[in-house]
Design a protein around this nucleic acid. Sequence first.
DNA 1: GCCAACGTTGGC
DNA 2: GCCAACGTTGGC
Length: 159
Amino acid sequence: MPAKSFWLMKSEPDECSIDDALAMPRQTVPWFGVRNYQARNFMRDAMRIGDGVLFYHSGCAEPGIAGIGEVASTPYPDATQFDPKSPYHDAKSSRESPRWVLVDVRVLRKTRYLALAELRRHEALADMAVLRKGNRLSITPVTPAEWRYLGTLLGSASR
DNA sequence: GCCAACGTTGGC
DNA sequence: GCCAACGTTGGC
């Protein structure tokens, strides 16, 4: 069995907050709406069930890490791409050959809110992909060292 | 609302 | 294959 990987996944709380995710059956949400190939490829090619996930709130007054979860499914097509009424509709995609896939993410627990501004103050996290200038990727890899360090910051086991 | 960063599109 | 124009992301 390959080693577990770790990911930071951005969600706009207006669309799906950590509380919204916790309110879902089995605290699990399909990570719909990703329309960037690099982020899609992480879900399609690199993620494995059980990988660690930092649930991150973006596009809001105070962005930051809101909880910890895990990858809970293998990749499958994002249904919103086929829905003409969805903002994520993609007319160039087809059911025969879907362009966009997603994974399910299961929230394990809400953490204390670790704001982006605080993340930036930790030297140990200086190389985190999400902190890089101009970063726009909605899914970024987290190194095991960063994951462990964040585990101590968030006051929990960092399994 | 501003704007830097950067991905995508399409003409050539 | 290049690259300018354009659109989007997302922090501030």
